[in-house]
Design a protein around this nucleic acid. Sequence first.
DNA 1: TGGCTGGCTGATTCTTGAATCAACCAGCCG
DNA 2: CGGCTGGTTGATTCAAGAATCAGCCAGCCA
Lengths: 253, 253
Amino acid sequence: MGQQKTAPENGTRESERRRTILRAAIDVFARKGYHGCRIADVAKEAGVAYGLVYHYFKNKDELLETVFETGWSGFIARARAVAESEGPLVEKVRRIADVAFEAYRVDPRAVKVLILEIARSPAGARINRQTAFVDVIRLSAQMFTHAKEAGELRPDVDPLLASALLFGSIEMGLTAFVVGLADARDAVMLERAKAQIADSFLHGVLLGGASAQAEPAKAEPVKPEPPKEEAPSDGAPLKREKAAPKARAPKRG
Amino acid sequence: MGQQKTAPENGTRESERRRTILRAAIDVFARKGYHGCRIADVAKEAGVAYGLVYHYFKNKDELLETVFETGWSGFIARARAVAESEGPLVEKVRRIADVAFEAYRVDPRAVKVLILEIARSPAGARINRQTAFVDVIRLSAQMFTHAKEAGELRPDVDPLLASALLFGSIEMGLTAFVVGLADARDAVMLERAKAQIADSFLHGVLLGGASAQAEPAKAEPVKPEPPKEEAPSDGAPLKREKAAPKARAPKRG
DNA sequence: TGGCTGGCTGATTCTTGAATCAACCAGCCG
DNA sequence: CGGCTGGTTGATTCAAGAATCAGCCAGCCA
């Protein structure tokens, strides 16, 4: 395929092979977990020889490290852009939720690995990882600090903690899908979850507060939600009630 | 120490030794992570011979499993009690946060292991674990469902998701301490964080909405909580700073 | 054509650490 | 005392799987 495969050039600088292996690693990690798989699995998934993995990556750990950097850097960049942009806090929070959910929509497996294997990787964990997670939280904490100074936040809210809570909500919301608590194949559901996360975070869940979608300050690009005549969402919640174009995506194991 | 060490009796039925090993396991897991330590480490920490660990536990996995059950069952029992009790949602949410933070205060290491190693253990994870986590969420989801029926919740809030968000907030709040983002040795800080988590979740972080402690539409019929004179949760950041008795102590109700 | 180069291969080697087990050491009972 | 029982020990065994390495092969240039 890549005609000019002569090493040196290649705009991407990242050989096709290398990318294949990385992709395979993400899939295998997502399926069996970092510790639960052997390099052999990755190689097989990628359809390459065992040794080739070592040609491109120093060792198993570097492989995970790379998966991390690849996925995380993209997310953090977008999140930072939002956090540092101008505009009302409400907007920013919504957009951050957007970024996270979009990432999930585009590549759920990668997000799963990020959430399950990396964000919470135990103490010893080399490099960034844990640090990285802390970084985003610090980053958005600044956003909250500014918002607070601008009088958008309740004065008794701690910026750092608020930041942690926002990401905690987002993460757990995503986890619900990752873990299968909610059906992730349903785009509408994702959209709804995203909206609720932002709303709950901003206005709380209690009745009587500022009504949630009160101000569509900025019209959402999509309006997948009808009048919100909430269905009797009993204990069997996040499972789309009535009919729905059951876009049956094949459950890839 | 029980003089009568003859096996059969012993009210606890759990030998002193066994408990020592379990404790050591918690500490070591918390320090180096499950995969990052060997049985030998646990044995050394406990001050017993390598083989003894296997005398009390079938294998390494059972050890983790036990750590899990031990810590988790206690938490889930308390959480369930709160969720199924009578009273306004506001109260329940606060008390659930209480339970979680109290657990942390009592045994931070154990909580760390629970959060880092078990709650998010990757896919394949045997038994409960992941399931257990899902269970609490389902459990509290019911609580939200009832609250919704009682008109305490905004109608557009999905119970299951709300539940996930609550625990997501709690977990991330705790994680902030676990990871060292915030100083966990300060009891006041913990108290403050706990309060903010409940408040933010209930009323949102925005200024202007229902003021934090504003009463929701439905007045609380019960006043089950004693004054609970808590630390003044002012706006001070997670880093304890000098006085800033910014008035407003969120004395609920 | 023949000699290079470098991506690629996979059997082989080496390490790590889980799990086993034969022996040891009380205290106890007959 | 001598034989039991059951907690305790730690060297030994063993399997898993990470990392290595001696080469293979395809394309390329002289």
